[in-house]
Design a protein around this nucleic acid. Sequence first.
DNA 1: CTGAAAGCGCTAACAT
DNA 2: ATGTTAGCGCTTTCAG
Lengths: 332, 332
Amino acid sequence: MAVTIRDVARASGVHVSTVSRTFSAPHLVNPETRTRVLAVAEELGYLPNRAAQALTTGRTHNLGLICPDIANPFFPRLIKAAQAQARERDYHVFVADTDEDPRVEEELIQTFAKQVDGVLLCGPRLSNRVLDRFRHDLPLVVVNRRIRGLPAVLMDVAQGARLAIEHLVGLGHRKLALVLGPEGSWNSKQIREAARDATIAAGAELAVVGPNSPTELGGQRAAPEVLRTTATAVLCYNDLVAIGLIEGLDQLGASVPGDLSVIGVDDITEARLTRPRLTTVAMPTVAAGRTAVDMLLQMAGNAVQGPPALTTLPTNLIVRESTAAPIRHEVS
Amino acid sequence: MAVTIRDVARASGVHVSTVSRTFSAPHLVNPETRTRVLAVAEELGYLPNRAAQALTTGRTHNLGLICPDIANPFFPRLIKAAQAQARERDYHVFVADTDEDPRVEEELIQTFAKQVDGVLLCGPRLSNRVLDRFRHDLPLVVVNRRIRGLPAVLMDVAQGARLAIEHLVGLGHRKLALVLGPEGSWNSKQIREAARDATIAAGAELAVVGPNSPTELGGQRAAPEVLRTTATAVLCYNDLVAIGLIEGLDQLGASVPGDLSVIGVDDITEARLTRPRLTTVAMPTVAAGRTAVDMLLQMAGNAVQGPPALTTLPTNLIVRESTAAPIRHEVS
DNA sequence: CTGAAAGCGCTAACAT
DNA sequence: ATGTTAGCGCTTTCAG
């Protein structure tokens, strides 16, 4: 067994509480005693047991972060931002991946409860009802989904979708397609509604393809169906899907942006590396991560809760090479 | 405060120990009592406090995984494999990212001690000496680095480097370059030594560029220096660096594989998406993740320790489009 | 099969 | 400034 506070106390000839204070309230202990205790602790290799600490203080100084797929390059950016912010507040972030499985998600929240002071739910796939149950067990902040009663950090993906559609229409496209994300995704729904409205407002047409897995494979698989529509431009659920779609289209002999224009959402690093470089709706990932951590820490701090906070961060369109004016097949 | 075992005991008219047994040793309790306790627990929304549980049992059923940069696509694959394996063993994995900072790494190991039953150190940047200190505090398994006294899962990157050099030489290249990774990286050292030996054995020359940050930016920044060598082919520390290098070379007017051949290491998903598609040394990431978890769990299980285990997994070369025969500028 | 009691490692009043 | 005491929520002997 590892060395405990008791061992340190015995070896330095003081009571355990003095040792405890040496670490948690140094100013309350005689400098000499403190030095001695510290020396003994160092020598014995004493490490405070965070779990036991948490049991008495009720504070673990850890935050949990749950995301559906850590392999999606969108999340590491968010995670790093959250970590950076947490670090400044003397907190650590434990990350877990659900593999897009709601049951795993539920399990993880339960596991985190009591081991962390709060959990950041990034694009949760769990139903509102289940999520709501956990609200009383531990502080929760949701990123990229709106759930009644839960504080949230949203990225204005609807505005982004609007921007994207307007860009496409501005280029001369009249027949558009939307490649959706997975079933439970709040973002997918937001994009869909905003794209529909913006399309109607512009007097254009919108075909909808999906739901699809939010991965390259998902995009690649959607390629045939996209070609079956008469669309000349397509907005994708995210960059991964867009990249996969371009690959899939290429295999079917359609080139981007020559035959079709493609827009993604997220602005992951890869968007600048593919050929053609991807036009995309940039998400304020870093700001979202930092904001979410602060909201969570605030909840974990005060027992009193006002109405759940809601922050909406703006998105913006980044035009690269995957969008262009449509080729004119016929003269109208 | 959340509902505890005590509340459940009171509400179901039994002693706390019976409630405890209902969860941790159901067969020791009368089926009727069990059903009743379970019902009450469900109704009250009782959730066992894992931290308290761990305090008495010494088992948290959690594993920690520390990696230098979660944004490097190499790690999510490893993480997912580790998670999958852990899940089958009824364990959860908490991931933390050090941002390539050894001090953060140290801090994280300390934080994890006592909150998890063991830690997977993926490509640690910490010195052997510091790492060795932690060995007595909690079970540790190292991935991609060899440290005396610590069990490790290694990917045979030296063999991979050899394969890469032989491929290049086989294509007709005689002047090679190696773009290194970061300072503390064990892999970088392995690649360097293997590449040197293989180059010598083949009667070719090897210029060394670096150390470099193990990112796209690192590769991009290395481009000018690579061009300053007379190399016609270059092996990079990893795929990210290779992709960045290709980008950097492109900006300087050198094309791949026309002017230079480039090989990466890892075989991340992106390697198939860039143009040209990247020739690379594939790492057995999934096998490594699963193996590492099993080793860790075994250590956490038995108090008795044999000599530290060591598993070396094979790598292999995947030839795509970023390598080709050199153009002959002059007749020899 | 169930209750009583001790204790995991630590902190937080309360004394002294 | 330091020691005493009582728990945090749970498991685990040991009795009964």
